[in-house]
Design a binder for these strands. Sequence first.
DNA 1: ATGAAAGCGCTAACAG
DNA 2: CTGTTAGCGCTTTCAT
Lengths: 302, 302
Amino acid sequence: MKHLKITTAELSKICGVSQGTVDRALNNRSDISAETKKRIINVARQYGYREYVDSNSENKIIGQVGIIVFNLNNEYFSKLITETELVLHKLGLSAVIMITHYDKQYEIECIRNMYNMGVQGIVLCSVNRGREFDNYLRLFDIPIVAVGNNIGSVPYVGIDDFSAMRDMTAKVIADGYTDLIYFSPALKYADAYAQKLRYSGFLSAVPNRKHKTVTDMEEISESYKDKTAIICSTDYYAFQVYVKARNVKIVGFDDLEAIEKYKIRIDSVGYSLPEIARLAVDIIVGKRDSGVIIKHSIIEHT
Amino acid sequence: MKHLKITTAELSKICGVSQGTVDRALNNRSDISAETKKRIINVARQYGYREYVDSNSENKIIGQVGIIVFNLNNEYFSKLITETELVLHKLGLSAVIMITHYDKQYEIECIRNMYNMGVQGIVLCSVNRGREFDNYLRLFDIPIVAVGNNIGSVPYVGIDDFSAMRDMTAKVIADGYTDLIYFSPALKYADAYAQKLRYSGFLSAVPNRKHKTVTDMEEISESYKDKTAIICSTDYYAFQVYVKARNVKIVGFDDLEAIEKYKIRIDSVGYSLPEIARLAVDIIVGKRDSGVIIKHSIIEHT
DNA sequence: ATGAAAGCGCTAACAG
DNA sequence: CTGTTAGCGCTTTCAT
C-alpha cells in the first residue's frame, strides 16, 4: 500500500465494488473471490500497487541489517561483508550493502535511507565523525555498530590499531632492521582515522630511530639496502610495494588472503574478521549472553 | 509513527493535552510551544516513538535500485557497483547491494527481499536460470536487468562472451603461439554460464590445433616453452597464473585495473563497465531515447 | 462473497 | 498556542 497512489475509495468506484472489497483484495484477506481479487489488483497495479511477494522457503529472509562502507576495492570489506552475511544468515536476516565512496554527505543520506528502508541495525564503516555526526546518529533508534573506524559515539568492534602497529614495528626492530620506511598513502586523507592511529602506533615505537614516512608510490624505489624494512599501513599497499620493490623486507597490515595465496613474503598484522562480524551482529541483534550493553569490543591482533 | 505503540488519543490523555496538540508535537508542525512539544515527545519516546528522519540535503536519495551479485571478490563487481552508483546518483537514486555467494535459493530470497524493500529495479548477476526461474521473475512488476550472466528471460547488458574469447584466441594464434592452454577453474561450476560461453568461443577458434584445458592451479607449471600461451577465462585467473608462471604468454579477460596498475604483461579482452552500468540503469529507469523496449544490449569488446 | 455502515486513528480547519 | 470539530482513509463488523 505504500506504493498505491490512489485511495481505496476511488479504487472501489473504478472497480464498481465496495471499499471493503478493495481492502480484502489488497491485503490478502479472506472472504473474497479469486476473480474479484484479480480484477481489483490489476486495476490497482496501474496506480502503483505492488503485490507483496511472500516466500515459502525454509530459509526465508525475515529482516535486514545494513552494512555501509566507504569502499569496495579491498579484501577487508569484501570479507567483512561475507562474514557478516554468514552470521546474519543463521538468524534469518540478510545483509544489504551501500557504498559511500568516501562521500560524507552521501554517507549521511545512506544511513537515513537504510533506516527508512526498515533495516534492524547498521554496521557502519564511517568517514564521518564528530559532535554533529553523533547527534545525527542519535536520531536513529536502531543499533549502529562501527567497524574499521572507531567514531566514538557508537559501539566499535575491531582491533586496537595503535597497539597493533606499535607491536608490529617493535618486532621489526627486534628482527634487526635499522632503516624503517612507513608507507601509507591513506595519510593524505583527512578522514582515515584508523590509518592515523596506525601511524601513531608506528611513531610511538620509533622515538629514537631513523625512519622515513612515505605517502606516495613514486617515492618507493626498486631496491633498498639490506637492513631496510618498508612498513605498510595495509596489505593493499604492501602488495603494491611488493610488485615494485622485490628485495626488501615488507610488512603489511590486515593479513589479506592474497598474501598467502600468491606466496608473497610479507609479514602482516592479523586479526579475525569473522570475529568482528560475529561481535557486530551480536551487538545489533542484542543476543549477547550478558545483559550488559557492550560499548566497544576490542579484539586480539597477532 | 510506524514505531509508536500507542495511539495519539491515548497519548493526549496521558499528557493532558488534545489529540491535535499531540499531532503537532510528533509531526514537526507549527503552532506549538517548544515546551509542550518536548514534554509530549518525551512521553511518546517511552512508547516507541521515533523522530521522523528527513533530509534537507540537495542530494537527497529518493529511491533505490537493487544490485544482486554472486560474488564480491572480483574487480568486475566492485567496478560494476561503483559505476552503477555513479549513474544512479545523478538521478537521485541509490544502489543497495546484496551478495548471494552462489546460493541459488538465497538469490531467490534476495530478489524477493529487495522487491519488498521497495527498490525501483534490480540489476541481477544471477546463478539461477531456466523456466522455473523465469516464472519466478515474472512475479515482480519492476524492471530486472541481467549482467554478467545472460539468463534469457530479462534484458541482458554485456558483451558477447563467445565472440570475445573466439576473437582473442584467434589473435593469439595469429601472433604465432602454437601451444595453447585454456585455464578456467570456473568451468568446474555448473552455473557459470558466461564462463561456458567463453570456453565455447575458445574451442571454436582452435578446431585443428593442439590445446589443453586446465581447471586447477596445481596443473599450472612454473615455466613453459617458448610458443606457449595460457589463455585465462578471467584476469582474476590470469593474475594468479602470472604470479606462479613468469615466463609465458598470458592472456586474460575483463581488463582489470590491477593488470595495468602493477604493469603486468597480460593481454586482456576489454569492455566498458561504465557503459554496462549506464545501459542497465537506462533500462531500469526507462529513460531510453526511443520508446522501444530493449531486450538485450550487447556492447563492444576489444 | 459482497456491500453498507460503523469505528478508529491521524490530520486539517477553525475559533478563541 | 491550544482545544474542538470535521474530514479522510483504512479496517472491521454485520447483514444478506
